[in-house]
Amino acid sequence: MELSLHPIILLLFFPGGLFLFVAGLLYEWVDRKLVAQYQNRIGPRFIQPLADIIKLLAKEEIVPDGVHKGLFIALPIVGLASALAAALYVPLVGFNPAYSFKGDLIVVVYLLSVMTLCLGLAGANTADRFSLVGATRTLTQLFSYEAPFMLSLLGPAIVAGTWQISEINAFAIQSRPWWFAFTQIVGFLVAMIGLMGKLEMPPFDAPEAETEIVAGALTEYSGRGLALFRIGKDVELVIGLTLIAAFFMGGLANPLDFLWKTAILILVVAALQSLFARLRIDQTVGLWWRAGALLALLQLLAIILGRYLQPVLSQFFSGLFGG
C-alpha cells in the first residue's frame, strides 16, 4: 500500500513520533496483559503503560553524583531517536516504508542496536555497582544475540535477492502462501528469540534481573530518562515485530495483515516469557553461541547453497533426464 506524506508529518506523527509512542504503549500493554493472563493474574488496564510514562515524565530527574552529566541526559534521547529513525525504513502497519534504499536492512539492524548500546553506556556511566554489573551483562548479551539475529534476517534477504526491506516485503507477499516461517523455521525461531534477547524480556532478563541487581543498567535512572528508555524499548518492540512479520510471515500488504500477524507474534512472545526461568548470563551466552549462532549459520549456508546450486543442479538434472 502506498502512502505519500509530507516529511514533517512522517517524522512527527506517522510512522515516526506520535504513532509509534501510542503503538508501543499499546503493544506493551498487550504483552503485559497476556503474560499476566498466562500467569493467572488479572494484569494492568489498557491505560496503565501510558499512565506509567506520564507519571515518570512528570517526576524529577535525579542526576546522581559521579556521572558524566551530558552523557547521562543524552543517552536516552539518542537511544529513542535511533529507534524512531529505524521506524522510517520498515513497513509499519502494512504501508510502504517512508524511506527506502538498497541495503537499508543493515542500517535498521544497526539502528536497533544503538538502543542497547546506549543502555550499556548509561549503566557504565554511573558509579552504582548494580548499574555496572547490569551494563556488563547488557553488553555481553548484545554480543551474544546480535550475530545470530542478523544471520537469521539475512535468510529471507538472500532468497529475495535484495537487502532492501521494502523489496523483501514485496517478495514475501508474492511468495504466499509459502511463508518463510515454514521454509526457514530455524531462522524464524532465532529471530523471535533474538528479539526477546534484544528487549531483555524474560527469560533473557539477566541484565535487569531485579532479584540480583535491582534494575541493572537503569538503576540510577529516574523521571524523564527512564521514561525515554522505556518508550524506546516499546518502539523497538513494535519495529521488531513488524520486521519479523514482514520477513517471515508472508509480508505485510495492508493494515489488517499487520494487525493479525503481529498479534500472533506477541501471543508467542508472551507465552515464551512466562514459560521459562531466567537464564544466567553465562547460560544465555552459551545458548546463543552454541545453538543460536550455529543453527542460523547452517540455515544461511543451506539457503546460499540452494540458491546458487539451483541453476547448476537443474541444468545437470535436465541434461541427465532430458538428453
Binding site: Y38, Q39, N40, R41, P202, P203, D205, A206, A209, T211, S274, L275, F276, A277, R278, L279
Partner: peptide, 16 residues
C-alpha cells in the same frame, strides 16, 4: 524461590 530464579509463573501459581 521461583521468583528469585526469575520463574515468575511458578511464583504466581504457587501463591494462588
Amino acid at each position: 524461590a521461583a521468583h528469585e530464579g526469575g520463574f515468575d509463573t511458578l511464583f504466581m501459581y504457587s501463591w494462588r
